[in-house]
């Protein structure tokens, strides 16, 4: 917890400064700096291999950045320097939650259990680190009830209340994606990092996802970082866009600005020759 510092007056939720991540000779992220604000969706886009997932891995403590500072301003708890924290402390204390590009649920456990597990630290304390729980003290039972209430709240928002007792692995793909988002929200984060949440969704599911993300932004007031290839999602809901290419930040600004930025267009057009899946950013709203 020595990473907590006192508020220095900056209003940004997340401040990334000179972030560099090197794997041997490969520089996956090269001197990237940007800010993300609360109540905003900040999209991170870029061709395959641009370093988007690596950025998330640095933010959530899976990688230690080679160089750079990742400062998170938590409205209640003060400032955290994420690059100095243990991976599992980042969601627990700094309030950064994430989802994965390849869904990582607990497939053999029920939907509800997945959501309860996201509240592990809270429940662990309430169970008196298991001792009170073993004795069945009311303190723990109340906490468990509250945890179920929070889980139910999110289940209602992703339309999975009916299937709360299913094994998570038996859900259709789209539901698994939304469940992973709900699970991340159950950690009660201030910054939610979503790695390609719309990948593999059909248009209907994709638009439901848009609604869910804007709901989270507007009603919960937290900041979202969104990696996405689907430009209709990106242009439709993001407030701010950061464009990465070969580890460098080539542009950043409003959707309107990015759409017309020649650097971005050329990066994507260059990509277009080898990869047909990627939409051109100007492709529509």
């Amino acid at each position: 917890m020595n990473a907590v510092m006192h508020d220095t007056g900056t209003q940004a939720l997340l401040t990334v400064e000179h972030l560099t991540m090197q794997f041997g000779g490969l520089i996956a992220i090269n001197d990237v700096s940007f800010e993300a604000n609360p109540r905003e969706i900040t999209a991170i886009i870029g061709p395959n291999g641009a370093g988007k997932t690596t950025l998330f891995n640095c933010l959530t403590g899976f990688y230690k950045p080679t160089v750079g500072r990742l400062a998170l301003h938590h409205p209640q708890r003060g400032r955290f320097l994420l690059e100095r924290m243990e991976g599992y402390d980042i969601p627990a204390h700094a309030g950064v939650a994430r989802t994965f590009q390849n869904i990582r649920l607990f497939p053999e456990m029920s939907v509800l259990e997945n959501l309860i597990l996201a509240q592990h630290n809270k429940l662990m304390r309430a169970s008196g680190f298991t001792f009170a729980g073993l004795l069945g003290l009311p303190m723990y039972r109340d906490a468990e009830k509250k945890a179920i209430d929070l889980a139910r709240y999110w289940l209602d928002h992703i339309n999975l209340t009916e299937r709360a007792d299913w094994n998570a692995g038996n859900l259709p793909y789209g539901d698994q994606r939304r469940l992973e988002i709900a699970r991340a929200m159950c950690t009660e984060p201030v910054l939610l990092c979503l790695d390609e949440p719309a990948a593999g969704l059909n248009p209907k599911e994709s638009s439901e996802l848009n609604q869910l993300l804007t709901y989270i932004r507007d009603e919960h007031g937290i900041g979202l970082l969104l990696i996405e290839h689907d430009m209709s999602v990106v242009m439709g809901i993001s407030d701010h866009i950061v464009v990465l290419d070969y580890g460098r930040m080539i542009s950043s600004g409003t959707p309107e600005f990015i759409r017309n930025d020649p650097a971005v267009i050329s990066a994507y057009l260059g990509e277009e020759e080898s990869d047909d899946d990627t939409d051109i950013p100007s492709g529509g709203v």
Partner: peptide
């Protein structure tokens, strides 16, 4: 109890556990 569920979660996916703030 939370610890028992955490054991099972660890069996399922350790990386997901970390991302939820569990101390593996």
């Amino acid at each position: 109890l939370p610890i028992g569920r955490a054991w099972e979660a660890l069996r399922e996916d350790e990386i997901a556990c970390r991302s939820l703030g569990m101390n593996p």
